[in-house]
Design a protein around this nucleic acid. Sequence first.
DNA 1: CGAGGAGCGA
DNA 2: ACGTCGCTCCTCGA
Length: 486
Amino acid sequence: MAKFYDTLLWEYISDPGKKWLSLDDLAEKYFDYKMISYDEVTGKSQINFKEVSLEEASIYSWEDVYITAKIYAEQQKKWIISDKTLNDIEIPLLEVLKNMEVTGVRISKEKLQEIGKYLAEEIIKEEKIILEIAWENFNIKSPKQVWDILFSKMGLPQWKKTKTGYSVDSEVLESLAFHYPIARHIVNYRQYTKLQSTYVEGLSKLIYEPTSTIHTSYNQTIASTGRLSSTNPNLQNIPASNGLWGSIREAFLPFGENDVLVSFDYSQIEVRLLAIMSEDENLLGSFQNGVDIHANTGYFLFGKDDISSDERRIAKAVNFWVIYGISPFGLSKMIGIPQNEAREYINKFYEQYPKVGDFFKKTIEFCEKHGYVETIFGRKRFITSINDSNSIIKKAWEREAINMPIQWTSADIIKLAMIQIDTFLREKNMQSKMIMQVHDELVFNVVSEEFEIIKKEIPAIMEHIISAPISLKVDMWVGKNWRECK
DNA sequence: CGAGGAGCGA
DNA sequence: ACGTCGCTCCTCGA
C-alpha cells in the first residue's frame, strides 16, 4: 500500500521541495472524503490495534487501500496516460525489464565463497589487532563505540560532526591513520566486513540454486532523475575498483561455456549532452574534432598543450563536476587542491565554454518563471521551491534544476536504447541476451556465433538514439567475467 | 521497527 | 552551506 502511495503520486515525486500531504488530506482534497482516523478506531483509551474488533479494523484498513487505489487511478488519468514519454518509453520498457529480471545473471557461488573465506580470515586478524591496541573489548561495527574508544578514551583529535554527535567515517579515520595505526585498522576492518556482509553474503543469499542465477528487480518509479533503480540485489552498486573490491565482479559469469559477457557504456555522456544542449561551440568543437576533451579543457585551464597527468586529472574533474554546479569549496575538497585554485579553474571553464553558463542561467530562469524544467524529450520536473527566500535552499534547488535536464535526458536515452536493442534481438532471433543495466552501461550475455553482429549493431543503436551535431560515443568491453569488462 | 551512520555505484 | 540520485548493511533505542 505504502509503495503505491509513495511512488506514484506524480506531483509529489516531481516536486521534492513541496510539503507532503497525508493520505487523509489527499482523500479530502481529491474526493472530498473524510477518512476514519486512527484515534477514532482505537478510542479514547487508545487501545492497541490488535484489540480493535475485526469488523472495525477491516473497514479502517479497507479505506486505506481503497483511497490509495483511487488516488493511483486519478494520477494515471492526470499524468501517466497524458504523458507521451510514458507511452514511448516507460510502458515499452516494462517488458524489457521484466525479461532481464527473468533471465537473471549467472553468479559463481564458489567464487563468492572463496572471497568470503579470505575475508573471514582478514576480519579476524584486523579485529584482533584493533582490540589489542584499544586494550578493551568493543563492537567495531558500532560508530558510537568506535568514537568512545578513539576520542573519549584515547583522546584523539576530533572535529567532524554528524547530526547527533561526532563522525568516525573513513575520511576522519584516514586523516588519523598516519599517527594512529588503530584508525587504519578500523578502516581495513570496515572494508572487509562491508564486502563480506553486503556483497559476499548478500549476493549469496539471493542466488537461485537450480540455475545459479540472481534476479534483481528494476524499479522505474523511484528515482527523481528518471533513472532506474535496482533492488534484491542492487546490481547497480557492485564494487568496480581495483584489487580486492573488484574481485566481486569476478563472480559474475556468462551462462554458457562458450559465451562471453560484453559491456557497452556511453562514454562521457553527460558532458556530451551538456555540449548538445548548451550548443556551446567550443565544447561541441572539442568533440567534433575528435580532440580529447580533458586535454582540451586542460589546455585552457593551464595554458599549454603538454599537460601533466596531474593536470589532466584536474581537467577531467572540472569537466565532470561542473555539470553538478559544484562550488569551489566542493571541488577543492573533492580533488585535493586549494579553494582559490578550484575557483580559478571553475571560472576558466565558464570563460572557455561561455554558452554552458548561459545554458545554466537560462535553465534556472525558466524554472523560476514556470516552476519546472524539462528535457529534450519533453519530460517535466516540477521544482517550485526554486523561488525559496532562503538563498541556501534556493541554491540547492538551482543545482537540481541544472543537473536534471542532463541526467534525465541521459536516462531516457539509455532506456530508448534498451527498447530498440530488445526489438533488434527478438527480430533477429538472437540467442544473446541483455542482462544488466547500470545507468550508462548495458551488459550482455553473448553466444560466440553472435559476437560479431552484436559488436557491430549494439553500439550503432546506442549511438543513434538522438541526432545531434555531435554523436554519442559507446565503448565496448569483453570478458569471461564482469571484472574483465573494463 | 525505524532512524542514523557508514559506504558502495552511476 | 558548499554535487545529485539510489540501495544495503549494521547498531541502537523505542
